[in-house]
Amino acid sequence: MNRVQRLLIASTLSATLVAAVPASADIAVVVNAGSGIDRLTRSDVVNIFMGRYRKLPTGNVALPVDSSSLKARFYRALVDKDLAEINSYWARLVFSGEASPPQQIVSIGDVHQLVIQNMNALGYVDSSQVPADMHVVLTLSE
């Protein structure tokens, strides 16, 4: 076996191992603990993050935020789609002037900041790492 073949097999094996390890935890959809929102259904969360209908049970306009590090896992768990499909979905709505995608935020720290500052903000975090000042409205199992 030459070096290239060994490398290929090694990388295939490690990819298989990574894929086989179960995800560390589920994904929690979170709001500000003082927002007055107790629970949201999966279809509420789909409506808000997919730009279909963005009204919160409080009557206010929901402000969804995407966090780059968890985005792929979140949409896989929510609608069983990968990021290219999500981009394709938004291309139709953006270029027909129907709706705008959630605000894109790179760091989890900034998502946290936004949710504690804004009563209408919705974010998502790894369910094993929910900060005390956030309230979980829906847990998505992966």
Binding site: N87, S88, Y89, A91, R92, F95, S96
Partner: peptide, 12 residues
């Protein structure tokens, strides 16, 4: 349906 985004090839 889709007529107002028919030139956005990436969407379909």
């Amino acid at each position: 349906q889709l007529s107002d985004s028919r030139y956005v090839g990436y969407a379909y």
